[in-house]
Design a binder for these strands. Sequence first.
DNA 1: TAGCAAGATGCGAAAGCTTCTCAGTTGTCT
DNA 2: AGACAACTGAGAAGCTTTCGCATCTTGCTA
Lengths: 138, 138
Amino acid sequence: MDNQQIKDAGLKVTRPREKILGILERSGRRHLSAEDVYKELLTNGDDIGLATVYRVLTQFEGAGLVCRRHFETGQSVFELNSGDHHDHLVCVRCNRVVEFVDSVIEERQSAIAAQHGFHIEDHSLVIYGVCTDCAVKG
Amino acid sequence: MDNQQIKDAGLKVTRPREKILGILERSGRRHLSAEDVYKELLTNGDDIGLATVYRVLTQFEGAGLVCRRHFETGQSVFELNSGDHHDHLVCVRCNRVVEFVDSVIEERQSAIAAQHGFHIEDHSLVIYGVCTDCAVKG
DNA sequence: TAGCAAGATGCGAAAGCTTCTCAGTTGTCT
DNA sequence: AGACAACTGAGAAGCTTTCGCATCTTGCTA
Ligand SMILES: [Mn+2]
Ligand SMILES: [Mn+2]
Ligand SMILES: [Zn+2]
Ligand SMILES: [Zn+2]
């Protein structure tokens, strides 16, 4: 049950937190901006402030429940943390997001970091392009 | 001479443009934020507005003279366009930046994009970690 | 070289995203 | 139920970046 995840994070189970987690779990698009979540709440008739949405998403991130991504759209997007790392392909026309994992790339990254004496903490790989649908539509 | 690059970009040769290009060329740190450039101008006694710095950097970017990077520091950084693509390692402690190119990664990226029917336009790969110096300092 | 028009500049205002402040409310534990 | 820390909504504020506009320059022409 959702509530347990919230409790395990050391957070009180409140309506905003339940609703926001629910939206992230049930959303078809897996990558939502704070504004997206906020609008979804409004649509559902929930009277929750935008500041709370940001606060909760940040707390969920701190607790490892969600991941924050920085695509080049000007706003962060959030997704449930599946536990497995992955990278992203983003369509510059329609913003469709495709996820992928490539072990060859992961290995090369470790090698490169080591080679330069860096202790890797994280990395971000985003490929921007035009998806098939958008290519067809000209 | 610098002025030619500016002219070739279809821009008038003005003091702000000459100074900003000069700073990018002479800077030890190759990756500067607009604010960094602005402060450098102030230090040199040049009375150039921050808005102009942003405008000029954006124009230079459009002309292919500089590249804009989006590391996760909250502000964009700019560097002279060397003509050769490269990716970045960034130290999360001291912000040191190391550049690298890895053909294996580049190839895998093309393959992945193709595999998902994406026509690649661009990509951004940043590895975040702790550099040797910072690791030593605890 | 003087004059002109397009283009550039600096300033402050404003936009866009995100965080903060604070008074009032709610969840949790006893 | 009562106490208290935690949480919330609303608006103010913070930050980076862009805009609007009156004024100044550059590059060209006569
Ligand atoms: Mn994802
Ligand atoms: Mn670089
Ligand atoms: Zn698309
Ligand atoms: Zn460092």
